[in-house]
Simulated assay, not measured.
Amino acid sequence: MENVSLLQAARGEVFDRPPVWMMRQAGRYMQAYRDLRQKYPSFRERSETPDIAVEISLQPFRAFQPDGVIMFSDILTPLPGIGIPFDIIESKGPVFEHPIRTQAQIDALTPLDPETALPFVRQILTTLRQEVNESATVLGFVGAPWTLAAYAIEGKSSKDYAIIKRMAFSQPAMLHQFLAKLADAIALYVRYQIDAGAQVVQLFDSWAGQLTPYDYQTFALPYQQRVVKQVKQTHPDTPLILYVNSSASVLDLMAQSGVDIVSVDWTVDMAVARQRLGATMGVQGNLDPCVLFGDKAFIRDRILDTVRKAGNQKHIMNLGHGVLQNTPEENVAFFFETVKQLNYSSNDFN
């Protein structure tokens, strides 16, 4: 059965219920994923080998039939293609042997050629479109410039982002050059994903919420806009979603990025988010992932509260962040079942 409601809702069409998918819906909370991880322990092998990445992407689709299927990948995937190698160590995260700290390193970066550097991405998305066969919307995703810069400069995950902020405040011209190069590479990467089959693309600027609003306007927003502008020049009809973790202080600024949908985390009430973002901006989210540890009545009540506050147009139901590792699979199933059974005209919404 054809189902591209997520794509159409992102474009502003009205349906009987919100479309639904879940960030990190493929991952460690699923037994099927944990079994596959035992066979392929390297994260990059899992995410960069087409057959494996497709299988992982389809695990939650087969189990829960969400309205969106997102490519299993990593936001850092394009970095080696511009000259920034990295590795991902299980339980530790990404590690960069040579963090970006100097002007010479930035000058040495090369333009991204996705077809040469990332041919597996085309294979993954093309196969996903074939496998899903219009029974759900296929999503691509990328990291936004500030967040990719944070990983590359810090050299690993960080709690305080002191190294990149030191560069921002003491060597801003150098950082702006790096962010510009990243933005241009990411724009190419988004276009490549769309051409390969992605119908909607989500931009993750996960760590931009660590900035003050002033610094967000200086170091994150202009480069989000740079990506979006380039993509919209060639692919104006492809909806783009922007997610920022801990985004309460910058939510209004996210709406200035040019994206079609702002993904709201759970620290902002959805009704407040609607007021701050304005009537024309689409929203995604924003159930607290920990709600899925509650009983079914509690989960349903929180879902209804979110959907009521979001309204019946241009809302994609999702979590406010990724599904957590130890979340019961049966509760994930109940989340999807509940949203898919909703109807805006029912007594629950009147």
Rank of each mutant, 00 (worst) to 15 (best):
L139F: 12
A162V: 12
I164A: 01
L148H: 12
S157P: 00
T116Y: 10
H176R: 15
F178L: 12
R122F: 01
I153T: 13
V138K: 12
L118E: 05
I153E: 00
A187W: 07
A187L: 10
L118D: 01
L148P: 11
S157L: 00
F141R: 15
T110M: 08
T116H: 14
V132T: 00
R129Y: 00
L109F: 10
E134R: 15
I124F: 07
L112K: 13
D184I: 15
A150C: 05
A187D: 05
I164G: 00
L188W: 12
Q177R: 15
D160R: 15
L128V: 00
T116K: 15
E131I: 02
A185P: 09
Q123T: 14
R191H: 10
E131W: 05
Q177K: 15
A152R: 00
A168M: 14
M167W: 07
Y189W: 13
K159S: 04
V138W: 06
G140H: 02
L128C: 02
Q177T: 14
A185K: 14
M167C: 07
W146Q: 03
V142H: 13
L109K: 08
V132L: 03
Q123H: 12
D160E: 11
M167Y: 11
M167I: 13
L139K: 03
R191D: 11
V138A: 05
P114A: 07
A117V: 08
I186S: 04
A144D: 04
Y192E: 01
L179P: 08
Q130M: 05
P111Q: 11
R122Q: 10
T126F: 09
V132G: 01
T137M: 01
A183K: 08
W146N: 02
A185Y: 09
E115L: 06
F178Q: 04
L128Q: 05
P119H: 08
P172K: 13
A136T: 04
Y151E: 00
T116D: 12
F169P: 02
G140N: 03
Q130T: 13
L109S: 07
T147C: 04
T137K: 04
Q177N: 15
S135H: 10
Q130E: 08
R166N: 12
E131Y: 05
L182H: 13
F169A: 09
I124W: 06
E134L: 10
D113S: 14
A162M: 08
P114F: 09
L188N: 14
F178K: 12
F169H: 14
D113G: 08
V142P: 08
R122D: 07
P111L: 06
Y192D: 01
P172R: 14
A149Q: 08
K156S: 04
R122A: 12
D184K: 15
P119I: 09
P145L: 07
A180H: 14
L128R: 04
G143C: 05
E131K: 15
A180D: 13
S170T: 15
E134C: 10
F120C: 06
Y161S: 01
L112W: 11
Y151N: 01
V132Q: 01
I124G: 07
I164V: 13
Y161D: 00
T127M: 08
T110H: 09
L188Y: 13
F141L: 08
